[in-house]
């Protein structure tokens, strides 16, 4: 797991800050495929395209997009995985 993944809620975090499209979505997909136990993943991103591409990825893959939250210089996008 990367970064602050071991939070109290066992939150899974993908840190894609500073990475340009399509990398945030690629890293999210890669994380999801290598962490079969994850139910909820948070992606941290600065790329403006992530705001559209992460919800679109969720729709194409059948997951639920649980919203984005501005945190200083980046946005945290939450994804509820359907597994």
């Amino acid at each position: 797991m990367t970064g602050a993944a071991d939070s109290a809620q066992d939150e899974h975090v993908v840190d894609a800050r500073g990475k340009r499209c399509p990398l945030p979505v690629i890293e999210l997909a890669r994380y999801v495929s290598t962490h079969p136990q994850a139910r909820r993943v948070v992606v941290l991103a600065t790329d403006p395209a992530a705001a559209h591409d992460i919800p679109a990825w969720c729709r194409m893959r059948g997951h639920d997009f649980a919203g984005g939250q501005q945190r200083g210089d980046h946005v945290a996008y939450a994804v509820e995985l359907a597994r």
Partner: peptide
């Protein structure tokens, strides 16, 4: 570095 506002408004994938 902003994606197409049209694709964004439609909620479709903007990369690729």
């Amino acid at each position: 570095l902003e994606p197409s506002h049209v694709l964004a408004a439609m909620g479709t994938l903007t990369h690729g």
